[in-house]
């Protein structure tokens, strides 16, 4: 986190007045999101920490978080590495994505793409001999889900989720962690406010083909398709990076 956003957060999450109520917490956080002080995808502190910062009880905080979830302003991913994450309806702006993309050089993108190719290819190959029936069903659902995703942020999450599921299907803890980390870094740059429906359809077709190769237990094909898919994505990223010029 940069110092600037640390400062913004300390203001956003300063204690409310005595006897802070759930509605006040909701108002504070939703305002911060609409002002861009809390940005899409940002993780909120743990419930314990957040209630201490805001000076409200955990019961009050939970009530507030439930309301924010209902409004679609935060998303709570649970599990050991879970937490509450900001969900800005607007998603990241083009400028914000450009800033993030410009932080990479072309060769760094290529290098990251190579790493993702290696991980995704291996995961798809192993998944074709190890996927459970449950996994195969989930893969075929997730392969298509991109069609109904709205906006850049949801498209990026949905796309990433499919690739993570391939590693899950490979029953590999390390590949899954690695894939999830790479998706967080690169996957979020793949979808832009100006991405077209045609791009969505192409990505879905490629996801479906990977899922089918895994289902048919064709290890070599699954690996090749996964690698081609990642290569195509990396090329799109590099083209965009080049268009940004010297930043």
């Amino acid at each position: 986190m940069s110092n600037e956003s640390a400062l913004a957060r300390s203001t956003v999450l300063a204690p409310l007045g005595r006897g802070g109520r759930a509605e006040e917490v909701v108002q504070r956080i939703s305002e911060s999101i609409s002002l861009g002080l809390l940005v899409d995808g940002e993780q909120l502190p743990s419930e314990t920490d957040l209630s201490a910062m805001l000076g409200v009880s955990t019961v009050t905080l939970r009530e507030a978080l439930a309301s924010l979830r209902q409004q679609g302003l935060i998303e709570t991913r649970r599990g050991r590495n879970g937490g509450s994450f900001v969900r800005s309806a607007a998603g990241p702006t083009k400028a914000a994505l450009e800033r993030r993309l410009a932080a990479f050089t072309v060769s760094q993108l290529r290098d990251a793409g190579d790493e993702l190719t290696a991980i995704s290819g291996a995961a798809a190959r192993l998944a074709s001999s190890r996927a459970s029936n449950d996994s195969i069903r989930r893969l075929s659902v997730l392969a298509q889900r991109l069609l109904t995703a709205n906006g850049a942020a949801q498209r990026a999450r949905t796309d990433s989720r499919f690739h993570i599921e391939v590693a899950v299907a490979a029953t590999s803890e390390r590949l899954t962690r690695h894939e999830a980390a790479l998706q967080a870094e690169l996957g979020s740059l793949l979808w832009w406010p100006d991405s077209t429906d045609l791009q969505v359809e192409q990505a879905v077709a490629e996801h479906v083909a990977i899922a089918q190769a895994i289902h048919r237990e064709d290890a070599a094909l699954a690996r090749d398709l996964a690698q081609q898919h990642v290569n195509g994505n990396t090329q799109r990223l590099i083209e965009r990076r080049i268009r940004l010029g010297e930043r």
């Binding site: 979830r69 209902q70 709570t76 991913r77 649970r78 879970g82 989930r138 995703a149 999450r157 949905t158």
Partner: peptide
């Protein structure tokens, strides 16, 4: 306690009824 996001309104809930 382990809290899981089982809310079907989210785009990626922990969809336990589907799990074997």
């Amino acid at each position: 306690p382990l809290f899981l996001d089982v809310d079907t309104a989210g785009d990626d809930p922990y969809d336990y009824p589907e799990m074997e």
